[in-house]
């Protein structure tokens, strides 16, 4: 059975933190560097995320995702380093290419921000069962429809990965080389994209129909199968998180 979520069932402290608190954490880790736009703050955020991922014992699992994100960000770094509009101060040479300070640091900032955000989301996604999160929110009054959309977002990456694996099997079993050096892999990756997107859309349509025939849009009150889970130190963590935000705001005002 292919698991259709990135969630890793481990028994760590982070796994027992209330999903709402993880959402607040994401909000704060994104907002604080915006309030205090300093490199050290951003780097502290990334370190914090990394530590939490390590505590939750899911750091390894998050590496491929970081790898993918970094690959994309690398192109940003190159393009901005070479062609950013405000480029004036040369920074370093790479062969015939001259990188400029302004563009480079601008791109570096984007890179760190994105990494920070992705890492924060990783904590949520890797340590929270999607159904637990959605259920908490729906219990708190979120419309089940939005809940479903949210849950789909959780599933879409693993779903695409699994579709990708399936199609890649179909292709290599009929003679298309997918293993080997980077060039072979990239060449094999491109023809995957079309079918993957298409098949994912088909699956989504089937799922929507499956939901409808089982009364998803019904206006009656829904019942829940699971007991409400016991989460740890919920109020304390929430309090601390808001305190961090407050501290950031005060720092900004005083500075």
């Amino acid at each position: 059975m292919k698991a259709l979520t990135l969630y890793e069932d481990r028994n760590t402290f982070i796994h027992h933190v209330h999903p709402i608190n993880k959402l607040i954490y994401i909000f704060i880790i994104i907002v604080v560097p915006l309030i205090l736009p300093l490199f050290p703050v951003l780097i502290a955020g990334i370190i914090m995320n990394t530590v939490l991922l390590l505590i939750a014992n899911v750091f390894k699992k998050s590496l491929p995702i970081f790898g993918f994100v970094l690959l994309i960000l690398l192109t940003v770094l190159i393009i901005q380093g070479l062609f950013h509009a405000e480029n004036a101060t040369p920074l370093f040479h790479l062969g015939p290419l001259l990188f400029y300070k302004e563009g480079f640091f601008y791109a570096l900032q984007i890179t760190l921000r994105v990494l920070n955000i992705v890492a924060a989301f990783m904590i949520l996604v890797l340590t929270t069962k999607p159904s637990d999160l959605v259920e908490t929110l729906v219990r708190k009054g979120l419309s089940p429809k939005i809940g479903y959309v949210l849950q789909s977002v959780f599933q879409i990456i693993p779903q695409m990965l699994s579709t990708m694996e399936t199609i890649s099997d179909a292709q290599r079993s009929r003679g298309m080389e997918t293993e080997g050096n980077l060039f072979v892999r990239i060449k094999a990756f491109l023809p995957l994209l079309g079918p993957v997107v298409l098949n994912s859309l088909i699956q989504t349509r089937e799922r929507a129909m499956a939901l409808e025939v089982r009364g998803f849009s019904s206006l009656r009150h829904k019942t829940f199968l699971n007991e409400v889970k016991n989460y740890r130190y919920t109020t304390f963590i929430q309090f601390t998180l808001w305190l961090v935000l407050l501290a950031a705001i005060i720092w900004r005002v005083v500075l």
């Binding site: 079993s173 003679g175 080389e177 997918t178």
Partner: peptide, 13 residues
């Protein structure tokens, strides 16, 4: 690799 083997062996899923 499966791709190399594909010349000799075919599989209907």
């Amino acid at each position: 690799t499966p791709a190399t083997l594909a010349k000799q062996i075919g599989l209907v899923f």
